[in-house]
Amino acid sequence: MSGVVTLKINGIDVGAQENETILDVARENDIFIPTLCYLEGLSRIGACRLCLVEVKGISKLLPACATTVAEGMEVFTDTDRLRKYRRLIVEMLFTEGNHVCSVCVANGHCELQTLAQQHEIDYVSLPYLYPQRTVDASHERFVFDHNRCVLCTRCVRVCDEVEGAHTWDIRGRGIESGVITDLNQPWGTSVTCTSCGKCVQACPTGALFMKGKSVGEMVHSPSFLTFLAQMREAKK
């Protein structure tokens, strides 16, 4: 049994269980906090920094997805400062890859695109970096387009934590890093991949998609994860 705490989010009093995160509580109360690396049912890595919030009395910004609530906390999710940082972070994702929404399989169903819209990004003020990236179409059912990867590692985590295959991992450092299958071999030759497709469903962008999908046709549905997580929780 865990205790109950009360806190304020954007001035509104809310109640929560003491082991919940700020993000959990905000969502329960229909308070919007943008997220990208977070996916319900996967570990919380606090990597994308889009969910950063301000907490009264703490000078650092805290990731809502990985910060547990505390009694009397006063959280602010939508300050000018946060909006400014979030906009820049989303912009940076556009500059880092090669995102051409109009010809993307995920057009209209992409979390990056949605984030841009939510943050009213009408253009990207930072210069595009135009990296040279490849497309891996060696798998018989799926394609991985590195140009559209935002390195959220949702595929890595779902494969490791839910499917248990650990086909995906990360290679390289900094701006040169990228996700790989097995020891950086073509996906189609992977001996660990079970072709379950969980990674494809978990991907927020058009980086992972099913073969045969054309522009705008790839709709990801990661909701199975919520279900799996609940089932596992119930079994414990």
Partner: peptide, 18 residues
């Protein structure tokens, strides 16, 4: 810093490059 960034979080990964 750019080449030593681990690449996990966006601000450091892309920000240092910018």
């Amino acid at each position: 810093c750019m080449t030593e960034s681990c690449g996990k979080c966006i601000p450091c990964r892309v920000g240092t490059a910018q």
